[in-house]
Design a protein around this nucleic acid. Structure first.
Length: 550
RNA sequence: GCGCCCAUAGCUCAGCUGGAUAGAGCAACGGACUUCUAAUCCGUAGGUCGUGCGUUCGAAUCGCACUGGGCGUGCCA
C-alpha cells in the first residue's frame, strides 16, 4: 500500500467513526502542499465537509485527527493548520522502505487495481482513409495511445480502436480522383474533380498501378473503373496509415470498418429499437430521431427523404456495436470540428438505454501548423498537408510524442516546423532521457568498480534532504498515472517526469553514489535503481525510448 | 443569432478540479566541472491570472456580462 492509500483509508475510517459518510471519493483528495513546511500530503476535507455538516472547519479537523490511528512508522504526525487543513508528515521509515518496494515491483511499479478488470475502449485518430495521416492525427495518436497505456496499468482491460470510414461519398470521390490520375498517366488527360483529392500521393499510386497492372483498367466503364480504383485506393491508404502509426509506436487492437456495419445492415436494429421506444417519427419524407428529448438542441435525421441512412445513424450503429461487444466504458477522441456532434451521440446512446457515464468524448484541440511563425493552411483536399511521417522523420518519434502529449488536450497546439527542428536539442524529452542515461552510467560505473548492484540495502542510511526529496517524488508516480487516466490528462506524465528528472539531477549533483562507505553506497545505488525504474516506466507509458547512454 | 474551446511571466505552458505566499521550461543576467556524463546544477530578474460584477470563511479555478482569438451550428461524410 502506498502512503496516499494508507492515509485515505485512515481518514475514511475516522469519518466513519464520526458517522459522516463520504460517497464522493473526490472529497478525499490528498494534495501535495506547495510549501514544504505544510507537510508531505494535505487534505482540505474538513473544510469541504464543514458546510454540509454545519460544523466549524477546524473543530471538524480536530475530530478527524483525534480519530486517526496512524502508524508512526508510516506517518510521523498529522497537524491541523490554517483554516482547517490537515497536514500529514510522512515518517522517514515509510519513505525509505518505498525505495526497496519500488525496486521490488520493478516494471510493475505504478500499477493499481482501480479498473478492477473493467473493459474500456479508446477510439482515436479514425482519420478518413483518403490521404496520408497528418500532424493532427499524430497528436491524437500519441494521446490515445498513452491514455490506453495508463488505463491498462490502472487495472482496466483497455482496447485501442480505429474506425475506418470506408464507405460513402468520399471514397467514391477518392476512386474518381485516382482514376483521373491513372488516365492522365496513360496520356488521356483527365482533371481531378474539383472537390476530389488533389494530393500527389494519388499520382504516385496511379503510376504504381500502371507499372503493375498496365492499361487494363482503361477500357472499363467509368462506373466500373471508379469502383475498382476506390477499392485500390482504400487499401493503399489503409496500409499507408497503418505503417505511419506503426513507425510511431501505435498499435491498434482493431481497425473497424464502416462497411462492415453497412453490409450487416446494423442500422436497422437501431431503427427498430428507437421506433419501438417511440423515439422516431416521419416528417418531410425523412425519418427523425427525437434527440432533443435527451439533451440535444434539436432532433436529427436518421433516414433522408432519399431513403439513405445518414452518417449519424451509421455512427449510432457503430457505438451500439461497441456496447454489444461488451465494453463497460467507451471513450472517443474527436477533433474540435466534431464538438457539435457530442450531444446527439450522447442522446442516441441514452435513448438506447446505455448509462450516461459509460460514454465519454474528449475533444482534442487542433494543431496549428506554423512555418517560420506563419500559419500553414492545412487542407487534405488541396494536398497541402504536412504528413505525420514527415514530422516523425524530422523530429523523431521520441520528441514528437513527448511534444504532443506534453500539453493539455483542450489546449490548441502551435507547432512551428522550423522551430521544432531548431529546438531538437532543447526539447525537454532529452532532459528526461538524459537523467535515465545518467543513472545507467552510474550503475555501470559501480559495476566497473567491482560493486554488485544491490537488491536490498540498508535504506535507513538515506536521510539527507536530496535523498528524501527524490524518494518523495518517486512515490508520487502511481497517483500521476491514475490521475492522467481518470481526468484524461496525459500531460501530467511528461510534466511529472521532468520534475523527477530535476530532483534526480539535483540529488546526483549533491551526492556521490559510488563511495567508500559501502553501506551508504549500496543504499544510494538502490535509490538510483528505483529512480531509473520510474523514469523507464514513465517513458514506456509515453512510448518513448529510455536510452542507456547519450 | 445560438453553442463549444481558449485567454496566467517577454515566449511555450503547468496550477492536482474551490484552498495556504500563483509555479516550471525556454529566452535574459550572474555563478559552479581536478569528481559516477556540464545534454547538468545553483542563484537573480520577470505577474492587474483578458476586463467588470457576483457566489463564500476563501476564486486563476465556480456563475453572469463584456473584450479578444479559434471552431462549430446540413435531410454532408
Amino acid at each position: 500500500m502506498n502512503p496516499q492509500e494508507y492515509i485515505r483509508n485512515q481518514i475514511q475510517s475516522a469519518l466513519a467513526q464520526l458517522a459522516i459518510p463520504v460517497s464522493d471519493i473526490k472529497q478525499l483528495n490528498l494534495e501535495k502542499p506547495k510549501q514544504e513546511a505544510y507537510g508531505d500530503l494535505a487534505t482540505a476535507i474538513a473544510m469541504n465537509l464543514a458546510k454540509e455538516q454545519k460544523r466549524a472547519p477546524r473543530k471538524l479537523a480536530e475530530q478527524i485527527v483525534s480519530r486517526l490511528n496512524l502508524d508512526p512508522l508510516y506517518v510521523e504526525k498529522a497537524e491541523i493548520a490554517g483554516p482547517g487543513f490537515i497536514n500529514f508528515y510522512l515518517a522517514k521509515h515509510c519513505l525509505q522502505q518505498s525505495v526497496s518496494s519500488i525496486v521490488q515491483q520493478g516494471a510493475e511499479y505504478g500499477r493499481s487495481q482501480w479498473g478492477q478488470g473493467r473493459s474500456i475502449q479508446l477510439e482515436f485518430v479514425s482519420a478518413n482513409p483518403t490521404g496520408p495521416l497528418n500532424i493532427v492525427s499524430a497528436r491524437a495518436a500519441a494521446i490515445g495511445d498513452v491514455l490506453a497505456n495508463c488505463f491498462a496499468l490502472c487495472g482496466f482491460d483497455a482496447r485501442r480502436e480505429f474506425y475506418v470510414n470506408d464507405a460513402g461519398r468520399q471514397i467514391r470521390l477518392l476512386g474518381r480522383s485516382l482514376s483521373s490520375r491513372y488516365l492522365t498517366a496513360l496520356g488521356n488527360e483527365q482533371p481531378v474533380p474539383e472537390d476530389g483529392y488533389h494530393g500527389l500521393y494519388l499520382q504516385d499510386l496511379a503510376l504504381e498501378i500502371l507499372q503493375r497492372d498496365g492499361d487494363r483498367y482503361a477500357d472499363l466503364s467509368e462506373e466500373e473503373r471508379d469502383a475498382r480504383f476506390s477499392a485500390l485506393a482504400l487499401e493503399y491508404m489503409l496500409e499507408r496509415q497503418k505503417s505511419s502509426l506503426d513507425k510511431y509506436g501505435v498499435h491498434y487492437d482493431l481497425w473497424f470498418r464502416e462497411s462492415r456495419l453497412r453490409e450487416g445492415q446494423a442500422h436497422r436494429a437501431v431503427l427498430e429499437k428507437l421506433e419501438k421506444a417511440g423515439l422516431s417519427y416521419h416528417q418531410d419524407g425523412a425519418l427523425w430521431f427525437q434527440s432533443s428529448k435527451f439533451g440535444d438542441e434539436k432532433d436529427r435525421v436518421l433516414i433522408t427523404s432519399a431513403g439513405e441512412p445518414t452518417y449519424f445513424l451509421i455512427d449510432i450503429a457503430y457505438h451500439q456495436n461497441k456496447y454489444e461487444r461488451g465494453f463497460d466504458q467507451i471513450i472517443d477522441f474527436w477533433g474540435p470540428d466534431h464538438h457539435g456532434y457530442i450531444d446527439r451521440m450522447r442522446a442516441a446512446l441514452l435513448a438506447l438505454g446505455h448509462p450516461a457515464d459509460s460514454f465519454q468524448v474528449s475533444i482534442i484541440q487542433q494543431v496549428n501548423l506554423l512555418r517560420n511563425g506563419q500559419p500553414v493552411k492545412m487542407s487534405k483536399r488541396a494536398g497541402e498537408i504536412i504528413e505525420m511521417d514527415e514530422l516523425v522523420e524530422e523530429v523523431g518519434v521520441d520528441a514528437s510524442r513527448f511534444f504532443f502529449v506534453d500539453r493539455r488536450i483542450s489546449q490548441p497546439l502551435d507547432f512551428d516546423i522550423e522551430l521544432a527542428k531548431k529546438q531538437t536539442d532543447e526539447n525537454p524529452v532529452y532532459y528526461v532521457q538524459y537523467a535515465h542515461a545518467r543513472i545507467c552510467n552510474v550503475l555501470r560505473y559501480a559495476q566497473e568498480q567491482g560493486r554488485t548492484l544491490p537488491e536490498q540495502a540498508d535504506v535507513s542510511r538515506l536521510e539527507n534532504e536530496f535523498e528524501l526529496q527524490l524518494i518523495k517524488k518517486l512515490i508520487d508516480y502511481p497517483e500521476v498515472i491514475a490521475r492522467a487516466a481518470q481526468y484524461l490528462e496525459p500531460h501530467r506524465i511528461p510534466d511529472y517526469l521532468q520534475e523527477l528528472a530535476t530532483v534526480f539531477h539535483r540529488f546526483y549533483h549533491e551526492n556521490r553514489v559510488v563511495i567508500d562507505d559501502e553501506e551508504l553506497s549500496n543504499a544510494r545505488l538502490l535509490l538510483c535503481q528505483a529512480a531509473r525504474l520510474v523514469l523507464a516506466n514513465g517513458l514506456k507509458i509515453l512510448g518513448i525510448s529510455a536510452p542507456e547512454t547519450m
